[in-house]
């Protein structure tokens, strides 16, 4: 039997990584929710975020937790530019064209990264990297919370909350939600929907890049790092309901917890097996996502 310590540790591990999945999925969900485009290249912005944070650390000596803000800014601008040049012309195109474009963008970005940054794995060293909080220690048992994961989790939480507040409370955020829900009506309200699409894409790519930057202390950066996250990201977004920010958070946390708990019963190499079984079950039984509310 598992002890209460093992179970708690598993829960903590799942939440810590789930928080990261949540913040990177928010970006993907935002882009889909506002533009109704499935961006297959989205995980590449996580990779770009990691490299921005890595260079900020290597050249400027910035801790990745601060470099994350730089990554957010750079990819926000990059995302807006890409939306303007590449995505905007195909917004009204058939879905096939959109898929070709974003899949093509995935390969283009990955290879551009290979060309620019080289194939080396890049990691940072920070003072807190090898430190951990030890909680409820008694006898040989304790709950370990590595600082690197804790900081990344808290940063992700902070950004997720900020994005949520932006969407709920600010005039631009409300206009973005209106555009997502009914673009024609939004234009009739006087909302510049083209500007909203651009901002949403920038915010989406920036949020995901931020999530990439904060995990740099415990995940090494490489041009192909995005591929490790792309499927998890899509799973989280579909579990929570495509296009919903709250859904992406719940979906992200769920993916983290499922991965973590399945490692208790299955070998670690199979940690995604249960996840995908649940994913397929959700697609079959409740394809609109587990958090969606039906509207008339």
């Amino acid at each position: 039997m598992q002890t209460i310590y093992t179970l708690t540790q598993t829960l903590v591990d799942g939440l810590l990584i789930g928080g990261i999945y949540a913040v990177i999925s928010i970006g993907l969900s935002l882009v889909f929710g506002v533009m109704h485009i499935v961006n297959f290249a989205h995980a590449e912005f996580l990779m770009i975020g990691m490299f921005v944070a890595w260079y900020a650390w290597a050249w400027l000596g910035l801790d990745p937790m601060l470099g994350a803000f730089l990554a957010l800014g750079v990819t926000f601008l990059l995302g807006m530019g890409m939306q303007r040049v590449l995505i905007k012309p195909i917004l009204a195109a058939p879905q096939v064209a959109q898929i070709f474009l974003t899949v093509g963008l995935l390969f283009a970005l990955e290879n551009a990264a290979l060309l620019l940054f080289g194939a080396d794995y890049r990691s940072v060293s920070t003072p807190y990297q090898t430190e951990a909080l030890s909680l409820f220690a008694s006898g040989g048992e304790r709950i370990i919370v590595p600082y690197a994961k804790l900081f990344a989790f808290l940063m992700a939480l902070g950004l997720g909350a900020s994005v949520w507040l932006f969407l709920q409370r600010t005039r631009t955020g409300q206009a973005m939600r209106a555009t997502a829900q009914d673009a024609t009506a939004a234009r009739l309200m006087g909302i510049d929907t083209d500007r909203m699409y651009m901002l949403a894409f920038g915010l989406g790519t920036g949020t995901t890049a931020f999530g990439g930057a904060v995990i740099l202390p415990y995940i090494t950066a490489s041009p192909t790092v995005g591929s490790q996250y792309v499927v998890l990201m899509f799973t989280a977004v579909v579990l929570g309901g495509l296009g919903s920010v709250a859904g992406a958070v719940v979906g992200g946390l769920l993916v983290g917890l499922i991965q973590s708990f399945s490692a208790l019963v299955l070998p670690i190499q199979l940690q995604n097996l249960i996840l995908f079984v649940i994913f397929i079950a959700v697609l079959a039984l409740k394809p609109e996502g587990i958090l969606s509310r039906r509207t008339g």
Partner: peptide, 15 residues
């Protein structure tokens, strides 16, 4: 063309 996931008051404010 109401905004379905916004409250009545939020819809009005968008106007």
């Amino acid at each position: 063309h109401v905004f379905p996931m916004m409250s009545v008051e939020e819809n009005l404010r968008m106007g």
